[in-house]
Amino acid sequence: MTLHITLVKIEETKISSDKAKKFIASEKNGAECIFVGKVRNENAGKKVTGVTYDAHDQAVIKSFQSICNNAKDKFDKNAKIFLEHVKGYAPVGEISILIAVGSGHRDEAFKICRYILEEVKHGSPIWKKEHYTDGKEEWLPGHSLRPKKEIKL
């Protein structure tokens, strides 16, 4: 198996970098690239306590499969890819997304990792609601999946 994708319900379990490293391990790998995205304590001058991630589960899995398969087609058909993203409330410091790639060479490993991250941000139906130290909360703006030419504000 060369592809692992999961939407992790954070009340049930957490994203594990050890699990990711084990999954991509192979003697064929000349490079292993791991990206870990975390919830940080500040955004746009506001002090953040945590982020609630909402997701359209089925569409997220479908998009993850498509993104990872495109990455393999584009950069390295033999790459091993591990992709997990959380759903639910994640406090500051928690891993929100982990992408691990095992490939024959460093260039492909870096490119696949970056490609997957950007595509997930722009194509996977996931939303973030930030929670602040003053008790307020806010859904963050994002990228519309409606064709740009149709949007007339």
Partner: peptide
């Protein structure tokens, strides 16, 4: 039908 507001995970 599902409404999909502008997205932004990661």
């Amino acid at each position: 039908i599902s409404i999909i507001p502008p997205i932004g995970g990661g």
